[in-house]
Design a protein around this nucleic acid. Structure first.
Lengths: 152, 152
DNA sequence: TATTTTTTGTTGCAATTACAGCAAATTAGT
DNA sequence: ACTAATTTGCTGTAATTGCAACAAAAAATA
């Protein structure tokens, strides 16, 4: 069975490092761009749902969002029919940065797919979707304390 | 052009979280297992090469390795023909943990590939290798300060 | 309706991460 | 051989990360 974990980790770390460097010019550090894009795509989303979307820790997401709020990219708005939830929206400043992030992501994606034909790229995307579903499901199990089925 | 960056990020984060949880029983935190496995595979490797292998920051690797040394999993040995390099080797304790890590990785890999046929899995691995090469090369360029070719 | 469970926001805290920067050793270039 | 550039190990420091824990609100259940 071929090994795929390593290259996925390597790719993810390299992309992460690239983003950290490139997005500095917009005063975005670390994974902030991830949250900003998702809030753009899901206006009014709450922090916990955002964390689930991205498969990151609740408090990590909460603090990243709070920093975006402090920087003026995102605003929190109390839900109208709910006294607990705080809905997230991009501010005008956040909306202005968004297209730059998207351009960067599109370019990174292009670079990543350079050596693949269009149909190979489509295949790859489909494979990754399947892998993603399985791995996140496994993660949910492990998080709940499920013991993985093999001897230690 | 299909989007592959997101699923790769999601998969990597989920795998990372799984590893963090599973490896606690061996007193390994965060990405420590990555370093331990690579030192097993490259006995005598120095920290900077290890960092390059994994595409992580020099100091991140150095501190992770130092923690492995403090915990007794790894030892540093000054090179015989060289007064600067410190070669890394697993201790007996490190060698004992290694098979457990490998079993965990193999299982994670199996789970990830559950929905793919063997030939699809082989294809996926080949695609990812190509992507990895491109992305890490791009990262090297960005690190050197190369401006990416599109308007901001 | 009353009670229990889950969800959501938040903070404390210890650890990891990563940028700067330094000194010493090595290597490359003249 | 000499100088400049690179490599390697290391530390300071600020930031991010993530586990634990809490309170309040909401949802689920009896």
């Amino acid at each position: 069975m071929p090994e795929i974990l390593r290259s996925i980790g390597t790719i993810a770390r390299a992309l992460d490092s690239i983003s950290n460097i490139e997005f500095k010019q917009y005063d975005l550090t670390k994974g902030q761009y991830l949250y900003l894009v998702r809030i753009y795509e899901h206006p009014g989303i709450i922090t916990d749902h955002l964390a689930n979307l991205l498969t990151v820790d609740r408090t990590t997401a909460a603090r990243a969002v709070q920093k975006l709020v402090n920087q003026g990219f995102v605003r929190k708005q109390s839900a109208t029919n709910n006294r607990k939830n705080k809905e997230l929206y991009l501010t005008e400043q956040g909306a202005q940065v968004y297209p730059h992030i998207q351009r960067e992501n599109t370019y990174s994606n292009q670079v990543a797919l350079t050596d693949l034909t269009p149909s190979e790229a489509t295949e790859l995307a489909a494979f990754l979707a399947k892998v993603s579903n399985r791995v996140t499901a496994d993660f949910e199990q492990v998080k709940k304390g499920q013991t993985r089925p093999y001897p230690h």
